[in-house]
């Protein structure tokens, strides 16, 4: 692959600034976690702006906790959790974690592959704020999170059928309900 034509030049700015830091970080990640890291896409070699670390599904929480607290990484800010639907491919879904460091101001991205029907361990123990982001992934993609305290729908009505952001859900698949969503008293105990 010809890097010069395929990688847009604006990715390069970050690579110049954080390239060496990312290289040492990726090396120490590989040394620490070994085969639990499937692969690392490095900017300049792959089509991405920051390094993408593909982690085994069972190890993701430990890797997140390590990245959050280890002095060589300090990715203390969970910028986002989301998912993508790669429909014809197997496994079907990819859960994406965006991390940001408040000390070095660089970013890194973690990815986990999930098959339809499988579940990912929850990151709520590491960042309590991951709660709603994971609920949203359940709502939109139907990926379950193991050990999540309150895995309900969040954007859609609780009576909604299907998961709208899946590629096979139609853009105009309306569903209408005659009554409002009632307060859930079980949540207040």
């Amino acid at each position: 692959m010809d890097v010069r034509t395929n990688v847009p030049n604006l990715y390069g700015e970050h690579l110049q600034k954080f390239g060496d830091l990312w290289k040492t970080q990726v090396e120490s990640l590989r040394a620490r976690w070994g085969s639990k890291i499937e692969r690392v896409d490095f900017p300049g070699e792959a089509l991405t702006d920051v390094p993408v670390v593909w982690v085994l599904r069972s190890e993701i929480v430990e890797v997140l906790r390590f990245l959050k607290s280890d002095p060589g990484f300090e990715y203390n800010f969970l910028a986002d959790i989301t998912a993508t639907d790669e429909m014809p491919e197997r496994p079907r879904f990819v859960v994406v974690y965006q991390l940001f460091s408040h000390t070095r101001f660089n970013r890194i991205r973690l990815k986990v592959k999930v098959e339809d029907g499988e579940s990912v361990p929850t990151a709520v123990d590491v960042w309590p704020g991951a709660n709603w982001a994971e609920r949203e992934i359940w709502d939109m993609f139907g990926i379950k999170f193991d050990g999540h305290p309150d895995l309900r729908r969040i954007l859609m009505d609780e009576r909604w059928e299907g998961h709208p952001l899946r590629k096979d859900y139609p853009l105009r698949g309306y569903q209408i309900f005659p009554t409002p969503q009632v307060p859930n008293e079980d949540l207040l105990k």
Binding site: D157, Y174, Q175, I176, F177, P178, T179, P180, Q181
Partner: peptide
Amino acid sequence: NSKMAPVMRN
């Protein structure tokens, strides 16, 4: 939206 419509009708 579909979540708000019954509220508005109420």
